[in-house]
Structure formats: structure tokens, C-alpha cells
Design a protein around this nucleic acid. Sequence first.
DNA 1: TGCCGCGTTTGATCCACGTCAACCCCGGGC
DNA 2: GCCCGGGGTTGACGTGGATCAAACGCGGCA
Lengths: 247, 247
Amino acid sequence: MSTDAATARLAFEVVKTACSNCNLRELCLPIGLPPEELRRLDELVSTRRRLKRGDHLYRAGQAFESIYAVRSGFFKTDVLIEDGRDQVTGFQMTGELLGLDGISSEIHTCNAIALEDSEVCAIPFSHLESLSRQIHTLQHHFHKVMSREIVRDHGVMMLLGTMRAEERLAAFLLNLSQRFKARGYSPAEFNLRMSRDEIGSYLGLKLETVSRAFSRFQEDGLLAVHQRKVRILNTAGLRKLMTHQRG
Amino acid sequence: MSTDAATARLAFEVVKTACSNCNLRELCLPIGLPPEELRRLDELVSTRRRLKRGDHLYRAGQAFESIYAVRSGFFKTDVLIEDGRDQVTGFQMTGELLGLDGISSEIHTCNAIALEDSEVCAIPFSHLESLSRQIHTLQHHFHKVMSREIVRDHGVMMLLGTMRAEERLAAFLLNLSQRFKARGYSPAEFNLRMSRDEIGSYLGLKLETVSRAFSRFQEDGLLAVHQRKVRILNTAGLRKLMTHQRG
DNA sequence: TGCCGCGTTTGATCCACGTCAACCCCGGGC
DNA sequence: GCCCGGGGTTGACGTGGATCAAACGCGGCA
């Protein structure tokens, strides 16, 4: 990334947070809102917050007050139980929401950690609720977002419950690919922001198994991997591997 | 809650569908609503629906219009993918909601099937949204319910991703036990409404493995099993097995 | 430039669970 | 009463992925 352009932008960037001039609004919460309602949304997002790679956005056990929209960067969420075991429950990228799990008990139930330098918009939840009482479309959209999270989780349960290692990794890569595509990036070539260990945790596999699956895919000409750089060479092959296989 | 009021209410129960005189309201959606708001909720639940064991409440692919509250009975939800694989994503009992997954795309993404003769209240979703725009507490409660579903799913992901067979079954049984208890039934003795195969599907195991785990628990004096009748003899033992074990 | 450390790869072995198969139990229909 | 069928149990065996262990490569730092 060009550093002087970046610094220049930063220098002039207005600190004021506003949805109405956010270039992510097609991905984020205000999706499809008419302009006048969009303007009312500006009062919603109170603050932005910058995080460096490795920083916690919130931790399990902390009081829940806001949900967060990823403006830039990449996150993981994980839960851990007493005996030391933990599991990555999701990876969040630009335009996706974090913190929905905290609503139920007013306490965050997982950790959210930046996998690269990132920026988020904090959305105080009580504000969101009161505004969504006034704006039907916002309310409905928010419900859809929560529901989509439930559907996504069902997909992961399916993956963990019925798929074998290579199918899981294929499904994971195709999902990432499609999300990068939706954000205007290449669906075929991208950098993984997470380690083999984190992928394994998310997929219910050990890091060695993930590594072996990557090697296998490379041997089979499905993709080219170099460290965290992935290029998908045969999407159809991955997709077939994901669904088919097994009697 | 005044108990004689409760019994009197039961004795005179009218067949009319109404939240305000439903004895489940401490479990269901209107939890904690003040009386006057509870009365307004009555307009919400339009119809009841009876189902026999094996009936579908809804099917994946059908248009989504309502969510459902279980009034009596027992349900499972499952998803299936092209190649024939399927997975049970949850079991729902009295007072729990069904259909939240359909909000995101206006289409149900899973099947809901009665595991015994059951009765549900249908709650047209658009009504719920409009009423929750007027009643803050209803809105907030609904958000909590959705969030709780997400948290529950994370728990299942944890289970599927990190636990071994006997730990999964122990976690499952303890969860059922606690839910029966919350409904005023014995937490120690209950009838399973689902087959070994359905338990296995939910837990990401084969039915033989579930069966063996049951036998093992019985050998170890943790519980007494006869067919679908389960009696928990050593809750602490189950809990220890669930968390501990594995380095 | 060379050293160090962490993330990754790869190989050898082990084991939990899946698979296949036989048998049992119980309930329902005739 | 008998038969039949579906769910459940149990055993023998196979295997996918975990575990253990070694070596590699790259980036950071002196």
C-alpha cells in the first residue's frame, strides 16, 4: 500500500464518524436505506476505534454495550472453556458485525481479536434499538443480520458435524473467496489473515491436518499456496470436493 | 407469581389464543412484560396449530412468514445438503421459538419436525416487528432471544469442534436436564423424545457411538438407561466428564 | 551477515470413532 | 399366540485424523 497516500489521507481524514458518507454502507448495517434515513443513522455510530494486530476489541466476560461494524481489517472471535480448550467461532471482515452474542446476557461471551491493524465503528446497542423503533427498514435489516448469523452458524455446525477434513477446508476457502469477491477483491487470490492453527480451530481440526490438506490441494492442482498467500486454480474442483465424496 | 391466581386461571382457561393467560409466558416471548403490555401482545399470536408426531411444522425452502412458539410437545430442526447428508441443528421444547433462521432470506432454511404430538403458537413476523416497535421491552426481549440462539450455536460449535464422544453426550444430557428442570419437570429423570440416530446427528456422531456411550455411562454408574428413559444418577460425574478429560 | 524463534511442513505411529454385521428387544398387527 | 419390523445393542475390524517428533523457511534483530 502506498504509504504517502495513506498518511496524506489520514492527515486530512475528518474524525467525525458518519454512515451517510461511509463507502461501506452497501455492506454494513444501513444497507438499502433511503438517503434521509441514512442521515439519521449518523447519530447512531458514536465512535470509531483503531486496533493493532493482536489487540482485543472486547473480551469474554466484559459488559456488553455496543456492537461493532468492521470498517477495515480482519477479526476472529473465539470462546474458551475452563479446562483450557478454545475454539474460533468466526472470522469477520470489512462490513461485518461483531458482538451480537453479547445481547442475550448483556455480557460478551467470546473474545474478539484483530488479526491485522483494523478499525471499527462502535454502535451503542441501546441507540440501535431506539432508532430501529423509528426506522422500520433499519429494524428489519438488523433482524436479518442476526438471523443470517444463525444460518451461518448452522452451516458451521453442518461442516463440523458431517464433513471430513478436506471438505471442511474446501468449504472454508470457497466461503472466504466469495466474501472477498463481494468486497471487490479477487475471489481467486488472497492472503489468509489467520494461522493454520486458527483455521484448524475454526474447522475442528489440528493444524497439521490443515497443513496436509493444503499440500494435498496443491498436489491436485486445485490451488497454489505459499505461506498465507492462496491462489485458487480450480474453483469447480473445490466445490465438487466439498459436496461430493463419501457415499 | 401468585399460585392460586395461576390455578384459577388454568381451571377457567379459554381456548382463545392469548399470551396474557398463557401459563408459559414466563418461558416464552412475553417474559417479564407488564400486564398492560401483555394484553396488547394478545393481538400478536394469531393462530395455534396442532401437529402429530412426525408432522412438519415447516420445510426448508418454504416462504417464511411466522415464527412459532412451542406450547406443548417437542421438535427437532434439521438441515440437509444436496448430496444427502443432513444434520439435526437443534431440539426445541415448550416455550422455545422456532423459525428464526427464516428471517434472513424470508425463506426457511431448515425443516422443523414434531417428535411427539405438539401444539405451537404462530406469530406472524411482521406483526412482531411492528409491535416491538411500540413496546421496548418486547423488542429488547426478542433481540435477547435471537442472541441467545447465537450463543447456543457457539456452544454446539464448541462441542462439535473440541469434545470427544462421551463429553458430547454428557453435555447434551446435562443441557436437556437443565431445560426440563426450568420447566418444572424432574432434572434427573426424563424420556428422550429422539432416537439414537437423531442424537448422533446433533452431536456429530454415529448412532452406534451414542449407544456405546450410553452403555459406558451406565457401567460407570453415571446414569440408568432403559430405551429412551434416562435417569441421571451422578450429575457431578457427568459434569466432570464433560469439562475435564484430555490434557 | 548470521543467529534466533515461530509458524509451517512432513513423516511415523496411535487411537477414537466409523463401518459392517449379527443379534436382541419390544411393540403392533393378525 | 406368532410374526414382523424398526430401533437399539454389541462385537470385530478399518481408517481418518490426532499425536509425537523432526526439520524447514522466513522474518526480525543484533
